[in-house]
Design a protein around this nucleic acid. Structure first.
Length: 255
DNA sequence: ATGGTAGCCTTGCTA
């Protein structure tokens, strides 16, 4: 089973790229983030015509996540537990072909020192609590999405540019590490030892042309899923297209 | 050199 994650930065603006990726990469499951539309505005017919079922947790203008799958989708959560007042559409979880998957759009958290950074860390704590619950099920679990965290110096072109950024702050990296200490595996890092393999390049300052990116989109595998990990990769193709998302898909294959 | 781009559907916010 192949699982991919992609922050598309508006599913309506990226519909052509999305359909191209579905037909060329043909993942069994695609986890989308930043669809930037309400449920009713998701281009469902086009995606269904490509052979995929669709579950959406949308929101007007910002955020929004979805799960696309060639197999039936049984939604198990359409929001991250732990804060009923949180209205932001950043979490959708489902069971697909015996694997628990989640599409995660973790808060960016900038600027540091504002409520936005506090929200990021609080959201991370809720995710950790949910991850513990999912581990207890002993089902294979794939927590995929835009984590908005650069795990290590090898995942950024120059850490000095990111010193005060919420994506690199030690509090954010520690929060991600806590998921690793729980037993989750970074699917890409587990199989690819090369440094400086990125999943995001800013639109500004020619970052793509200069290959000055960061790796912030991750597939975290529970032990039962990691036991089945056979292959992983980052597909840079979509980032090089005209009017591309600033992120590109990350994928893995489980036996 | 505090710039630069993109999408929302606003005239600013978020990233």
């Amino acid at each position: 089973m192949r699982v991919a994650t992609w922050n598309v930065n508006s599913v309506k603006a990226r519909l052509g790229h999305l359909c191209g990726f579905l037909s060329s990469a043909a993942p069994d499951v695609l986890l989308l983030q930043e669809i930037k539309c309400q449920d009713a505005d998701f281009p469902r017919l086009e995606v269904e015509a490509a052979g995929y079922r669709v579950e959406v947790r949308g929101q007007k203008s910002y955020n929004g996540v979805a799960i696309l799958s060639r197999h039936p989708i049984e939604v198990t959560a359409d929001r991250l537990p732990g804060d009923p007042s949180d209205e932001q559409a950043r979490y959708l979880e489902a069971r697909v072909a015996g694997v628990r998957v989640a599409s995660i759009y973790l808060p960016n958290g900038n600027p540091v020192g504002t409520p936005k950074f506090d929200y990021k860390l609080a959201w991370f704590a809720r995710l950790e609590a949910r991850a513990r619950e999912l581990l207890a099920t002993e089902e294979p679990v794939v927590l995929g999405g835009d984590y908005n965290v650069i795990p290590e110096a090898a995942d950024v072109y120059d850490p000095a540019d990111w010193t005060e950024d919420a994506l690199w702050r030690i509090e954010s990296r520690r929060a991600l590490r806590r998921l690793f200490w729980l037993g989750f595996t970074d699917a890409f890092r587990a199989l690819d030892g090369r440094p400086h393999q990125y999943s995001f390049w800013d639109y500004q300052a020619g970052r793509w042309q200069r290959n000055e990116g960061i790796r912030i989109d991750h597939l975290l595998l529970s032990p039962a899923a990691a036991d089945r990990l056979e292959e992983s990769g980052i597909d840079r193709g979509p980032r090089g297209l005209e009017r591309a998302s600033d992120h590109t898909p990350v994928w893995c294959r489980l036996s």
